[in-house]
């Protein structure tokens, strides 16, 4: 059982480009929203307070990226090896992009959901999960038919790894500050 699971877990080389794509999306969004807020924050926060705020949000973004990475690995464990693990970088990157697109659409309609009944609200995550699972199957098929597609996606994901060297240390540094501020 454990051997089968271990067999499906991606190697560090496979995981890094996918994680880099996640970091890129999570941190880019966070930075975008953060800098929208900065003009109002500088009305009452000095540089030190802004710095503390920054450490909180980057540490959270790191945690959020890890959660999403965990979900991608979970998908990898659920599906047969040849459908996910054997093309982890391409399949993982595509799934991250699909989750991002689904998230974007839900976000666009979030105010509409405030009028939904409970059962309608509960169908949203179910439908989202179904779309993700279906897309894994579809892309597994596409990747098996068109070899250039996964290579193209892999090269894209490879280029994202540069962001890891910036965002990962920032996130870790933020985490250290948050832990220090909260231990006493």
């Amino acid at each position: 059982m454990f051997t089968r699971i271990r067999h499906k877990i991606p190697t560090r080389q496979e995981a890094l480009p996918v994680f880099a794509t996640i970091l890129f999306i999570v941190f880019s969004w966070m930075f975008f929203q953060f800098f929208i807020q900065v003009p109002s924050w500088i009305f009452y926060m000095d540089a030190r307070k802004l710095l503390v705020m920054f450490t909180y949000v980057v540490s959270f973004s790191l945690a959020e990226s890890l959660v999403l990475m965990g979900f991608v690995i979970f998908l990898c464990l659920v599906f047969p090896r040849r459908m996910f693990k054997e093309q982890f970088i391409a399949q993982g990157t595509v799934q991250v992009l699909i989750i991002s697109i689904i998230t974007y659409f839900i976000r666009q309609r979030i105010e509409l959901f405030q009028k939904f009944e409970i059962w309608k609200l509960l169908t949203i995550p179910v439908v989202a999960l179904a779309v993700i699972l279906l897309s894994v199957l579809v892309f597994a098929l596409i990747f098996s038919r068109f070899e250039k597609v996964p290579r193209l996606i892999e090269s894209l994901a490879d280029r994202m790894t540069i962001f890891t060297y910036l965002y990962l240390p920032l996130g870790v540094l933020g985490l250290v500050v948050v832990v220090l501020r909260n231990i006493i």
Partner: peptide, 16 residues
């Protein structure tokens, strides 16, 4: 618009 791209969605759906 929240600063969390992904996790704010399930949190918001749970709140609702």
């Amino acid at each position: 618009k929240p600063g969390s791209y992904f996790l704010s969605i399930p949190v918001d759906l749970a709140r609702q």
